[in-house]
Structures are given as structure tokens and as C-alpha cells.
Nucleic acid binder design. Structure first.
Lengths: 115, 115
DNA sequence: GTAACATATAAACATCTTTTGATTTGTTTG
DNA sequence: CAAACAAATCAAAAGATGTTTATATGTTAC
């Protein structure tokens, strides 16, 4: 039962829904998330860990960086996340997604997790 | 976004999942829930209100009693609840469901919400 | 009307979760 | 190896949620 509760707890936070919405667009590293969401790094790390513990995100370490992405190994979670993200009003995450596009386009300077 | 968050917050509590599991079997009044879950009445009322506010339960007043049941007017919530209840390990709610059967069978004495 | 009952609400308290600021760990680069 | 950086962790503070005890509200039965 606790495992199921952890999934819902993970989904009951606005910041975490934003993270999922961003991760839906593709794998993202912590430093980019900090920049896209404009929140402190420990705060982002805390929420990423919560999502990971709930089995909703998975991580991939590469050098200094850690990349997070939607964990699609479990059908129930995958489906939940899909239907949840569908339900988030576009207006609510508009700015985050715009910022994501901007950050992704800066391939040269200012860009973290890019060799 | 808040409305969506409230649905997940409502689903992130063990007592509330138990209540939903019981309500799946049919409409139930507060006094019976208190007896089935063996918890204080204000505690049950608190959780019922949380579920109602999240749009997962609806209530029906009848005389002294208030009967709660799954609110199936919204597809997203209905589907969520269905798949969630499916996921709860039977072992976890076995005793509650047994107690529910007992309580439902006592139609004569000790039974509240029965004229 | 008053007594008995079912439920809701409120205030005080306990517990859990999130945020912050400081620090640590681990990796890369020169 | 030292400096620079990314991310995680930690302890303390702040905030939110759940629980308890006592009380209020509304209904029924006498």
C-alpha cells in the first residue's frame, strides 16, 4: 500500500508536476531544470529524488551531470503520468516550457551539461 | 492545477484509500464507516470531507444520517479511483472488508442509519 | 419542547513535508 | 593535485496536514 501512496504523494506537488511536464519533452539534467524552473538546486534535487523514489523518474549519471527522464518501465505509472500531464492546464506551465525551449537552444555558451 | 493537485493529495492517505475501497462496495453512512474502520468520528469526517472536496466522493443527506458514495460524474476521477483501488493489495484491506460485511449483515440491533 | 443521536466544526496539538543555507561528495579540467 | 563545477545531503526553520478532545448543529423521537 505504501508504494501506491508514494506515487500519489509524488504527484501531489506543483513543482513535481512541472518537472514531469518538462521531462515529458525529453531527458533533462539537474542544472537545466534549475534554470528552467528558476528554483534552488537543493530544492530541485529534493523533488527529483521524491519522483525517483516513487518510480516516476529514472536517472542516468554522465560525468559531472545527472540526467533525469520519465521512467516508462511500469505501465501503471506510465499511464498515470500520461493522463495527469494531459490534465495540467497549458497556461500553468507555458512559461516553463518557453524557458525550456530557450535553454535547449543555447548550445554554446551558458549551457551546462554539454561538453 | 490546484484542482488536479487536490485529487492526488486526497489519494495520498491510507485512511482515505480504505474509505474509497469500502465505498466501492456501495453507499455507506458515516456511523458505519466509523465502525468498519474503528476510528474516531471526527477523523472519519475529516477524511470524508477531503475526498468530497477533491470530487472523489459525493454525499446524500437523509434524516440524521449522511451517506457517502463514489462520485462517478467525472470520467478522469472515476477512472483514477477504479485503477487505484485495483492496485491496493487485498491483504491490506481484508479486515476492513470483512468488518464491512459483518456490519452490513446486522440489520436489526446495533445498526445505525436504519429506521 | 427536551432528550438522544449523527455528523460537522473548531482549537490545540502532533506529525509530516517542504524549503533554505551550509556543507559534502564526486567529477572534470588544467 | 588544486580549482571549478554539478549534484546530493544535512540540519534547522517554515509550512502543511492529520489527530484529538470538546463543542456546535441539525434531526428525530418522545
Amino acid at each position: 500500500m505504501q508504494e501506491l501512496l508514494n506515487v500519489f504523494k509524488a504527484l501531489s506537488d506543483e513543482t513535481r508536476l512541472r518537472i514531469l511536464k518538462i521531462a515529458e519533452k525529453g531527458e533533462i539534467c539537474v542544472c537545466d531544470l534549475v534554470s528552467v524552473l528558476d528554483m534552488s538546486q537543493p530544492k530541485i534535487s529534493f523533488h527529483l529524488n521524491t519522483l525517483k523514489e516513487a518510480g516516476l523518474l529514472k536517472d542516468r549519471k554522465q560525468g559531472k551531470w545527472v540526467h533525469y527522464s520519465i521512467n516508462d518501465s511500469d505501465m501503471f505509472r506510465r499511464f498515470l503520468v500520461l493522463s495527469v500531464l494531459e490534465k495540467i492546464p497549458g497556461e500553468a506551465v507555458k512559461k516553463n516550457l518557453a524557458r525550456l525551449r530557450t535553454v535547449m537552444n543555447i548550445k554554446n555558451k551558458n549551457r551546462c551539461c554539454e561538453k
